[in-house]
């Protein structure tokens, strides 16, 4: 009897832990060369010509997202965007995306910079780290996966941790909703 109870508990525990994250140990970042220029407008004269979104597998990888969180502090992103609430730079935990919420748009925001104060980090941050940052930045407004997003903030009494963040549907997304990757 005891053994059966123990077995049941172990099986249940194993099942629950399986749900947490299916980690690919060698997740390749999307190649930067493959990135197509994304439109920043919802207006597409003479019909839609939307490039397909680049898949960022780091979104499902807890290690990559947590590396992104560390890099977000190390590259001084925190100094301007705080822990998502913003300051010198805009908030990243809300549903407003001035330059687009798609992974490749965030990638180019970091690499190319933006005219109203976002610096260009071209040549300063390796591409795979930029993709880790992208995965973390999206998780800040609940656009990550529940399995991979951090369960708590590392800093003093920060905002709601990304894993508990209610999803903020991006405003003025330049891609149709169907182009978003479905949750796993």
């Amino acid at each position: 009897m005891k053994t059966r109870v123990l077995m049941t508990i172990c099986c249940a525990a194993a099942l629950v832990s399986c749900k947490r994250e299916e980690r690919g140990f060698r997740v390749a970042p999307p190649s930067a060369e493959k990135i197509e220029t994304k439109s920043l407008s919802d207006l597409h004269p003479a019909g839609s010509s939307v490039a397909p979104p680049t898949k960022n597998d780091y979104r499902e990888n807890a290690y990559a997202v947590s590396e992104g969180e560390k890099l977000f502090a190390a590259y001084n992103c925190v100094g301007c965007h705080a822990h998502g609430g913003g300051g010198m730079g805009p908030a990243l935990m809300d549903n407003k995306w001035i330059y687009g919420s798609q992974p490749q748009q965030i990638f180019s925001t970091i690499v190319e910079g933006r005219p109203n104060g976002m610096p260009s980090f071209r040549g300063k941050i390796p591409d795979f780290q930029v993709w880790e940052l992208v995965a973390y930045v999206r998780s800040m407004s609940g656009l990550g996966t529940s399995g991979a997003s951090p369960n708590r903030s590392d800093e003093m009494k920060g905002p709601t941790p990304p894993s508990s963040m209610p999803k903020q549907t991006p405003q003025n997304s330049s891609l149709p909703k169907s182009a978003e990757r479905p949750p796993p």
Binding site: A82, H83, G87, D94, G158
Partner: peptide, 16 residues
């Protein structure tokens, strides 16, 4: 003025 998010207490160097 900059539409910061009030849910992050550390925003604007903690002034939020």
């Amino acid at each position: 003025a900059a539409d910061l998010d009030p849910r992050d207490p550390t925003g604007a160097l903690g002034f939020v």
